[in-house]
Design a protein around this nucleic acid. Sequence first.
DNA 1: CATCTCACG
DNA 2: ACGTACGTGAGATGC
Length: 651
Amino acid sequence: MELEKFRYEGFDKAGLRSLFDELEFKNLLRELGDGGGAAEKPDENRTVPYDDYSLILTEDGLDRVIRRIKETGEVSIDLETTSTDPMLAEIVGIALCPAPHEAYYVPVAHRSLADSSTRQLGLPAVLGKLKPLIEDENLRKIGQNIKYEFVLLEMYGLGLNGISFDTMIAAHMLDSSRISYSLDELCRLYLGHSMISYKDVTGTGKSKINFEEVELEAAKVYSCEDADVAMLLARKLSRELEELGLLRVYRDVELRFIEVLARIEINGVKVDAGKLRELSKEFEAGLKDIEKAIFEEVGYEFNLNSPIQLRQVLFETLRLPQKKLTKTGESSTDVEVLNDLSKFHPVPEKVLEHRTLSKLKSTYVDALPRLINPRTGRLHTSFNPVGSSTGRLSSSDPNLQNIPIKTAQGRRIREAFIPEEGYMMLSADYSQIELRLLAHFSGDESLIEAFMTGSDIHNRTASEIFGVTPDLVTPDMRRLAKNINFGIIYGISAFGLAKQLGTSVSIAKSYIDEYFKRYGKVRDYIEKSISDAKSKGYAETILGRRRPIPELASDDRNRKGFGERTAMNTPIQGSAADIINIAMIRIHERLASGFKSRMILQVHDELLFEVPEDELDVISRMVREEMEGAWKLSVPIVVEIGTGKNWAEAH
DNA sequence: CATCTCACG
DNA sequence: ACGTACGTGAGATGC
């Protein structure tokens, strides 16, 4: 009740203070050793208590907390820091929750203490006391996105062992379709409670203060609530996982995967900043030349990066035909349109060249060096394990899963990704993992046969569709078959295929018909995926991760169509993700047994390693073995391995 | 902060 | 008749 009142009235300092005065009394009782809430039987059906939280300002206090954690055998941890990037963050305070409704806040770097007589414990002393507990694998650690704590504690020389629950990961496994997996969102959903938001304690905009400036009492309530809610959610979500039979996979795969990702993030990848600087100059000169040519052609200067200005130039000044509209009804100037307009005028092609170069320069060449960690001299991405609804990872700050490769200029950026001195890059790629899963799931004899014999799958598909022997398949036929194979995985439609191929819908339709004549069980499988998802309400992967698809029940043709494509694509894309995750866990564990080699990136179906030359052979074999053996399918799983002095060479 | 565009699998 | 390929993140522009 107090919480609700506090929230609705906004951040009222006076009101907050009286609330805190009341709480302070209980804290005092606890400090005096009356037992407080700890001795009472906590009512787990309450939402968030808010009254059994204590500030820890003394060594004795901290010792009591540590005893409590040892008593309960578990602790939910929430660190307050100076940065969302755990590689750069400094600890401001630590919330520890050893049991539901009982939490403690240990400030270590707050600036505004209650009064001059208030002293907080120093960070070295606190970490010194907590280290044995944090490293004790028999004390269960609970958290919301605990990879953050793992990476950050590692920066302080503490190894976080005994991760027993991550609420974010659990919620994603139960329902990967959510937009947000924030603690606040999960708390609202599963506990029916709105939490104090970060903004409530720090303010926003101009008057925003850093967490170090937040008063101890406000920091305590905010931070302890986070730790407490994670503890409460862990119990709730654990029951849900158990009911669905997912607890084992959750523990054996999802939880273990956290540490693998943390290690990759900590390892980071080296980039040749000098090489990128050279590329920047070169691209700059190229952009200038293209600009000049375009401005001469058009007759005046404008901002090529502005779609609005470009629209005016192409469709008003040059009077070129308008091909398609954007979502908001404006004339599109995207790559498809510009390619098409290239046959009428020299400018569109030049604009495309400019776009490509400008994109590469701003997004990669100029941006990446700024993100090099000054301590390590390397790039450390952040992998988000709940970043997609299929179960794939996403990567950000920087995104290292979309480094260019398709064009020659792009590959030059990849050349700047280099191994440490004395090491080589090793890249291991799953070959056609999604089509192999399609063969496995559908049981289609033709598709299985193609993979059993190790043939070029697109060539094989082309030969089937066009009714010629594989040696008579032309590059055009193969390209078309490749598009169909992709289309099948995406949830094919004649319209989509036609657009991709640049043919008519009726021609695309005839290709699809021919495909399904040859691969009949693929059609059956697609239909079964959709009907299964319809009856269950969700699609699932080989590990049982669930993606609800409410669109399947929609009356809207588009929404329903989207739902159907989702129903057939998710088990394939998601299971491919499951398989590489399993491989990564095994490889991580084997690397830990005395190798110098490091796993440094995952790009959906590729793993990148930094390997000392004398480990190349053994690591190649080990990586292949673990990737190919991660899951048993009815067709072989094949991995292609390359090595080189940079990422471009290794790929 | 939305829009457009484009980098990747 | 209608609109559709699956999954992401980021930079630049302009309100």
